[in-house]
Simulated scan of single mutants.
Amino acid sequence: MGRVLLRAVFVLALPAVLIAVWWAASSGSVNPYWPPLRTILTTFPDVWTADRLRSDVLPSVLRLLGGYATAAVVGVALGTVIGSYRRVRALCEPVLEFLRAVPPPVLVPVIMLFAGIGNSMKVVVIASGCVWPILLNTVEGVRAVDSVMLETARSYGITGAARLRSLVLPSAGPQIFAGLRQALSIGIILMVISEMFAASNGIGFTVVQFQRSFAIPDMWTGILVLGLLGFVLSVVFQLVERRVLAWYHGLRASTRRSA
C-alpha cells in the first residue's frame, strides 16, 4: 500500500506543480489570448457537457482507436515478415526509409482525394503516421531474437506459427510495445490534424471553431481535454503493457535484485 501511495505521489507531483505555476503566472492576466487558469476551469464544465462529449470526444476517440489498431496490425505483421527474412529486409529498407521520411500531415490532401472527407480519411491519416514506429521497432525486435534460441526451437521441431507465437513475438514484445507507445502520441496529434480538414465534429474541429470565433477560454478547455485524453490513454497503455509483458518486467526486477 505504501509503495502504491508513493508511486501516486510521484505521478501527480509534477502535474500539480505545473498547474500551480500556471495558476500563479496567469492569475493577473488581462491578455485575451492568455486567460487566467481559473477562468478556463470555470468555463470547462459549461463547454464540455455530456452532449458535447458524445458528439465530439467520442468520435475522436473512435477514429484514433481505429487508425491505431489498423497501424498496429499492419506494422506488427509487416515488421515480423521483414525482420525474419534478410533478403526481404534488404529489398524493403530503401522504400521504408523513403516513406518514413514523408510527414503524415503532408499526405492529408492526397488521402482526401482517395478516401474522401469522411471518417475513413481520418482513420487512414492516423494509421499512416502510427504505422512507422510500430513497423520499425517490430523489425528491430524480430532481428534481435537470440539466434541460439531460434536454433534450439528448430532442433525441437518448433517452426512456423508455433515458433512465431512462442518465441519470436514474445522476444520482440518489449521492442514492439516501445513502438506502440511512440505511435500513441503520434496518433493523438494526427487525430487533431485530420479533424481540422473538412470535419464536422471531433476535438480538433471544436478547438478550431472556438479559435475562429475568438472564444479563447473555450479553446483552452479543448486543449485541456486533449491533455486529459492523452493522460488517460497513457495510463491504460501502461496497464496493458504491464499485463502483457509481466514476464519481462519480472525478469528485469529479479536481475536488479540479484545484482
Rank of each mutant, 00 (worst) to 15 (best):
Y85S: 12
Y85Q: 13
Y85A: 15
R86P: 09
R86F: 11
R86W: 05
R86Y: 05
R87T: 15
R87H: 09
R87L: 13
V88N: 08
V88I: 13
V88D: 02
R89A: 13
R89P: 09
R89V: 09
R89I: 07
A90K: 04
A90N: 12
A90M: 04
L91D: 09
L91C: 15
C92N: 04
C92A: 14
C92G: 04
C92F: 13
E93R: 15
E93T: 10
E93K: 12
E93H: 11
P94L: 09
P94A: 06
P94E: 02
P94M: 02
V95I: 13
V95T: 15
V95H: 03
V95N: 04
L96Q: 10
L96A: 15
L96H: 06
E97F: 12
E97Y: 06
F98P: 06
F98N: 09
F98K: 07
L99M: 14
L99V: 14
L99C: 14
L99Q: 13
R100E: 04
R100I: 09
R100N: 08
A101C: 10
A101V: 10
A101Q: 05
V102K: 10
V102G: 04
V102I: 11
V102Y: 02
P103I: 13
P103A: 13
P103Y: 07
P104A: 12
P104Y: 00
P104V: 05
P104N: 00
P105V: 14
P105T: 13
V106P: 10
V106T: 15
L107I: 03
L107K: 03
V108I: 13
V108W: 01
V108F: 01
V108T: 01
V108E: 00
V110H: 05
I111A: 03
I111N: 01
I111Y: 02
I111P: 06
I111C: 08
I111F: 03
M112P: 11
M112N: 11
M112Y: 12
M112L: 15
M112K: 07
L113T: 15
L113A: 14
F114G: 08
F114M: 10
F114V: 11
A115S: 12
A115E: 00
A115P: 10
A115D: 00
I117A: 12
G118S: 11
G118D: 07
G118F: 11
G118W: 01
N119M: 09
N119T: 15
S120V: 09
S120A: 07
S120H: 04
M121V: 07
M121T: 04
M121G: 06
M121E: 00
M121Y: 03
K122Q: 01
K122T: 04
V123H: 02
V123A: 02
